[in-house]
Nucleic acid binder design. Structure first.
Lengths: 190, 190, 190, 190
DNA sequence: TGTTAAACGAGACGGTACGTCACGTCTTGGA
DNA sequence: TCCAAGACGTGACGTACCGTCTCGTTTAACA
């Protein structure tokens, strides 16, 4: 067994955390459009180079902040029936108050930068899809979903509505909306 | 009846068209992220001021280009039944090949700039929603949609899936996808 | 006869002067080593790009400042005899108090940057040499300089001593030093 | 008698020599302007700290390299007469081909950094002056120099011409130039 | 048929942030 | 204690665009 340390001064965990926090604070206060690498560095008390050394863009910093925060929070309910699972999952998912600035900022960046888009999909969005897929797979096993319904389309419907409302901000995004959508989905798969 | 002419040299229609074309060409060639006002002006053979005189931002130029192109193309099918209408509407809507760079660019801008977001919603997105709403209202009148189904949620489902796939680019966006979604919606509203 | 104006907004004379003054002030206060383009721009109330648009480097700004100031000051004495001319020329030339920071800064830059070195030679140093050459040519015509003495070497001697003392700062650089050198040169050319 | 050893690991002579060589190689290849501490360290296979531990700046490294190389080479001729000594000294001194990049780099640094300027003067330039002074003192003892001629000024003349040509690079710097200057000096001191 | 006034092209302007470079210092494990 | 390695805070670099401004020129309606 050998030491897995690389030579040289190790990466500063203090700086890493200061950067992630600073990014979230700047974002919450001034919005994603006003977010700058220089601003993050200044607030974190860190050199710009320390940011560029570890993250290819400011969006990747924000994504890491989000993943750090959301790490523990993905819970897949297992209530025994599709309607119960869906309501539990969607009411929780739809109550992402405060996350809107983060999510639309990341999405904006993903739309402008294909490289980041891949990271965003793989590290964030696809994880959420997998959680929902688990619920649907259990429902399929129980025979709660008609065999001619494509579960991937159902996932698109659920997250489509979520993101569409997140982006347009034209309709409420809360537990009630989650319940309403859950009931529509249940109706559609019979 | 009065002359609506203002004194001075009138706005140049030539310049206007050159700007809209240049914007679309730049966008198609280099993507929205690389679009700059200076680039548009240079390609159009126009001074920057001429752009700023008539549009508040480059996104508004692109939106105008899009609306110019799409002006005639919003047709609301009326086939006599919800399934037929939906299939007609969605197969056409989902076949927007080539429009993706424009649409995701505008959406990115809308996410970053709340002022433009309003313009984008009011001048583009809500128009699309209204078309679908017309179809649904006719179906409701015919009794094809259960009374406890909120048509606005149905619209969110349809455009949610459309935009979600447009943004993520993880699943096909074509006539087949349109038909699949149409059949799911029909199933859900019974 | 046509207007020789180029199209577009003309160069701002105000900005030009503000930049040259700011450069000289910064240089006098903090020295050439601490001179930065950002510092000049900030003090002049000007964007950095306005400096880069017109000067390839900060050294060229300083050189322009120097030439602006020194424009009128090159006077070639004509007293009728080599000793008198030399004393007049050297006492004046050697009394360049306050210019030392400027001159050694420019020389340092010229040593580090061959492109600027050419500009410095052609626009400043060779002009000084030409003035002395005029004096020597008159002396040659009068037969005051032995024919086997190369006037270019004499110029090197005079400016060599000047610059060597400027650079090393090990010996006085004043009117007395000028007189002493003048008498040595006169002695050498007999 | 005590051991002059300090505790701990002794300084690595290997590293010292690698640093001096690397500095000279970088300088000869890319010029002084492109010389960096990081570049020297990388080429020498040495940590940056090892350089900073022993030298205050990169210029001091180069100065040490130069002094290492030039250690043995200062020879003061003693031919019995001023003209012979001067010709011998100047022809040798002026033939410093290959040294130009080193010398102008060090001079540039000295002009920008007063601390290094002192080191450069004391450790390099004044040693050269002393050699010439020895020759002149012998000539004074022999009565070859008129008593009203300041030998320090003569030294300034000689090194002034040398450095002025080194800096401007406008005239040859070779044995012939050395002989020409020697004959002018001899003429001037009669 | 000139006068008036706004739009036009060109491009310079004061700014902001970018991503990079090198500085000189600090912090590891190993010699 | 020194060494190689390399991360750190710092600060300036030169560039790209922003949105505004100031030129001389063009183009129409009005006088």
């Amino acid at each position: 067994m050998t030491s897995d340390r690389r030579p040289g001064r190790p990466r500063s965990e203090t700086a890493r955390r200061a950067i992630l926090s600073a990014a979230m604070e700047e974002l919450q206060q001034h919005g994603y459009a006003a977010l700058t690498v220089e601003g993050i560095a200044a607030r974190a008390g860190v050199g710009k180079q320390t940011i560029y050394r570890w993250w290819p863009s400011k969006a990747d910093v924000v994504l890491d902040s989000l993943l750090d925060l959301a790490a523990e929070r993905i819970t897949v309910p297992d209530e025994g029936s599709l309607p119960a699972d869906l309501v539990a999952f969607l009411t929780e998912t739809f109550e992402q108050r405060g996350q809107r600035p983060v999510l639309i900022g990341l999405m904006a960046q993903a739309l402008l930068d294909p490289v980041f888009a891949t990271a965003f999909r793989d590290r964030f969005l696809f994880g959420r899809r997998a959680a929902l897929r688990e619920i649907l797979d259990r429902a399929i096993a129980r025979g709660e979903i008609a065999p001619d319904v494509d579960p991937e389309l159902l996932i698109d419907v659920v997250y489509g509505v979520l993101w569409y409302r997140l982006l347009l901000d034209h309709a409420p995004l809360d537990a009630a909306a989650g319940r309403q959508l859950a009931s529509l989905v249940v109706r559609a798969v019979r």
